[in-house]
Design a protein around this nucleic acid. Structure first.
Length: 403
DNA sequence: AACGGGTACAACCGCGCATCA
DNA sequence: CTGATGCGCGGTTGTACCCGT
């Protein structure tokens, strides 16, 4: 593997893209679609590698991209999703139409991380830093005890201190999932006004993981349950894919607060891929909202400020009036998950459709990366079904389910 | 005006996975 | 089955810009 053969070729430009290059790429893809990325630069007359072209297109030239600053809603959603998904930026981006994974990643690293730290929250674990210190002390104590048994083990543990349950596995697994099995805590004891009414204590929550490093044991036939106040080890990890969505289950059991969803953006009813109807016997939970009454769902998103508000900007003003965070509403906000396939389907239903650049006439491009094409409202059922099925398979793998 | 530090963002790099011959 | 290739993802680096001194 390693570097692509195209990257070894000489005379390939690197660095910033010039407007001329942008124009060439935009023109070419607009007229022909990208097709095989490796052939794009040649056909478009660019001295770039295909990979670079793809990146430029996805992160910058795509006409459906939202430009400009992230709204507070978007930031909140990113934080929320990061707590669940970790550094899976593409999946997070899937929930933010018009935003790219790169953009979100940059925002996270440059801005949100800092804000969270300022609030005493560890951005990796979403735990309070003070609690992490306690954990670290405890771990040191544990390691001291263990050191009498095996010094080598301690080295491994230290190396994986960020991922206590991931002490085995490949370098990549440890590296890429170094925060994936951390507890997820929705409490801010240093700022009690931010605590949701009725919520007491922490909410240990094993972050969703994928691959062999998954931090929770998953029973594909049962639902992921969440027991407030329990420890991670007490968490009842169950999935119920056949009954309703994973996240619906999470919402029902994890966040035992009344779900209030205020529909603000209606999805087009003519898009089969986003109906909450069953596909292949499994309900489409993309774009669904969740309720506490056993999984009733709506086909409307709700990211209305009123219904979803725990902005950092508010919380950040420690001791100020802006701290009246609507935690119950935060908790009631649907967690949305999706793989790459649904990304595109979802982006066709932009939350911020009024801000998305107007449609362009892409011709001959039915590949996933340009499925944002707004004309895809007319996508046929089979395509949506295929995408969805693929997505479910990916999710099944992601949750450690092997079917 | 020049310089340096900080920040935000664009782009590259390295890797894993999927596909295909 | 295996190697080559393409794609996508997450981490990292580079750079333009802003602001204070």
């Amino acid at each position: 593997m390693g570097r692509h053969s195209c990257c070894y070729k000489q005379k390939l430009r690197k660095g910033l893209w010039s407007p001329e290059e942008d124009g060439k790429l935009l023109n070419y893809i607009t007229k022909n679609g990208h097709g095989c990325w490796s052939s794009v630069p040649k056909l478009a007359g660019l001295q770039r590698c295909g990979k670079s072209c793809r990146l430029r297109w996805i992160n910058y030239l795509r006409p459906d991209l939202k430009r400009g600053a992230f709204s507070q809603q978007e930031e909140n959603l990113i934080i929320e999703l990061h707590a669940v998904l970790g550094n899976r930026w593409s999946q997070i981006a899937a929930q933010l139409p018009g935003r790219t994974d790169n953009e979100i990643k940059n925002l996270w690293n440059s801005c949100i991380k800092k804000k969270l730290r300022q609030r005493g929250i560890d951005p990796n674990t979403h735990k309070l830093l003070s609690e992490l210190e306690i954990d670290n002390e405890k771990q040191v104590t544990d390691n001291d005890k263990a050191s009498t048994v095996s010094g080598e083990f301690n080295l491994i543990e230290a190396a994986n201190s960020k991922s206590p349950s991931a002490s085995s596995g490949s370098r990549i697994a440890n590296n890429k999932n170094n925060s994936s099995t951390q507890d997820f805590i929705l409490e801010n004891s240093s700022n009690t006004s931010c605590r949701p009414p009725g919520l007491v204590g922490s909410f240990p929550f094993q972050k969703l993981n994928h691959g062999t490093n998954i931090g929770i044991s998953v029973n594909p036939n049962t639902a992921l349950c969440f027991n407030p106040g329990s420890s991670s080890s007490e968490m009842i990890s169950q999935f119920n894919l056949s009954n309703s969505s994973i996240l619906s289950s999470m919402s029902n059991s994890i966040f035992q607060t009344p779900i209030r969803v205020k529909p603000s953006v209606s999805l087009p009813s003519d898009n089969p891929s986003l109906r909450s109807s069953d596909i292949n016997g499994v309900q489409n939970w993309e774009g669904s909202s969740f309720s506490n009454d056993g999984g009733s769902r709506s086909t409307s998103y709700s990211f209305d400020n009123n219904a979803f508000s725990w902005g950092l900007s508010d919380c950040g003003k420690s001791g100020e009036e802006g701290e009246d965070i609507k935690w119950s509403e935060y908790l009631s906000t649907p967690f949305l998950l999706g793989g790459t396939g649904t990304v595109q389907n979802q982006t066709s239903q932009p939350m911020y459709s009024n801000e998305i650049k107007p449609d362009t006439n892409l011709i001959g491009d039915v590949s996933g990366s340009t499925a944002w094409h707004q004309n895809q409202h007319q996508q046929d059922n089979s395509q949506a079904s295929n995408v969805y099925t693929k997505d479910l398979q990916r999710l099944a793998v992601a949750f450690g389910q092997t079917t």
